[in-house]
């Protein structure tokens, strides 16, 4: 599809009755996070997460897989579909962009600026929204259900609010027919079918698919793919709007939770069930 009016524009899409399906331009948000397999630490004055030993957030692999499947259903990159991996983070975050390219994204964007350090969800969503606008009209923004470090799940909803786009979050199944998205969202005690028209912001859960691994071909192909590095000045954001300065919340204190000391461990000799009940009684838990 050649020209598209801006996202949110009332005539943003051609009629869905097109027989030839339009190509898609999808932005996938991938966050570079500390590997949960190692001990994770809060450091420094802002009590921010130490980012050594970081990886592509495993929950964002589901979003990338969903993007690739939607793109492939319309002929993939060859047919002109785009899957752009966007990560905001310090220098190392480019590794998560590279990994996304190896897995199959068509191009990458790394939003990096010293002023971004310590951004809360509000500042993060502000910067990511500006970066997405910079990329021009897109059909779909796909994200993970939560970052494995921040774990707030605030960013996708805030992006939808800032971009003025429909929000479909926690999608455990996703289908695209023409320009109509249909998703399943499992809530407490019920499961909903949710519908919206492109362009939209969609977050996906780990129930939605089985993410693929990069293969040798993908790793070679990634070397030729383009990564754009953006600074705040490129996307029209002032340093005072992000980072600790632009965040609307501040972490004042952080204390490592005393490690759980291992308690009593017994081996069952035929009466462990009784001993368990004795323990519960002693703890006044019966």
């Amino acid at each position: 599809m050649a020209m598209r009016p801006a996202a949110g524009h009332p005539q943003a899409r051609k009629a869905a009755s097109n027989t030839v399906e339009e190509t898609l331009k999808i932005v996938v948000l991938v966050k570079h996070v500390p590997d949960a397999q190692f001990d994770r630490h809060l450091t420094g004055q802002g009590n921010t997460v130490d980012r050594d030993e970081s990886i592509l957030s495993e929950l964002d692999e589901y979003a990338l897989e969903a993007a690739l499947q939607l793109s492939e259903a319309r002929g993939g990159a060859k047919a002109g579909n785009e899957v752009i991996a966007l990560s905001m983070g310090p220098a190392g975050a480019v590794n998560s962009v590279k990994k996304s390219l190896q897995i199959g994204a068509s191009s990458g964007v790394h939003l990096s600026d010293d002023a971004l350090a310590g951004s809360d969800a509000a500042a993060t969503s502000l910067a990511l929204a500006a970066a997405i606008r910079y990329l021009g009209p897109v059909d779909l923004v796909l994200t993970g259900m939560a970052s494995t470090d921040g774990e707030t799940s605030l960013v996708p909803a805030q992006l939808a609010e800032r971009l003025g786009l429909p929000q479909i979050t926690f999608a455990s199944a996703l289908e695209l027919n023409g320009s109509t998205l249909t998703a399943r969202r499992d809530g407490d005690g019920h499961s909903d079918t949710v519908e919206a028209t492109l362009p939209a912001v969609v977050s996906v859960t780990d129930q939605i698919n089985e993410p693929r691994y990069p293969n040798f071909k993908g790793i070679l192909a990634a070397k030729k793919k383009k990564i754009t590095t953006l600074a705040l000045s490129d996307i029209g954001i002032d340093a005072s709007q992000v980072g600790a300065a632009g965040s609307l919340t501040v972490v004042e204190t952080a204390a490592a939770r005393p490690p759980r000391t291992a308690g009593t461990i017994i081996t069952d000799e035929g009466d462990a069930g009784i001993k368990l009940v004795d323990f519960l009684a002693a703890q006044k838990l019966l």
Binding site: G263, T264, I265, I266, D271
Partner: peptide
């Protein structure tokens, strides 16, 4: 675990 049992859950749980 504050209280751990090395054992078969199919024996321990019904007994408890």
């Amino acid at each position: 675990a504050d209280f751990g049992i090395i054992g078969d859950l199919f024996k321990v749980l019904p007994q408890a």
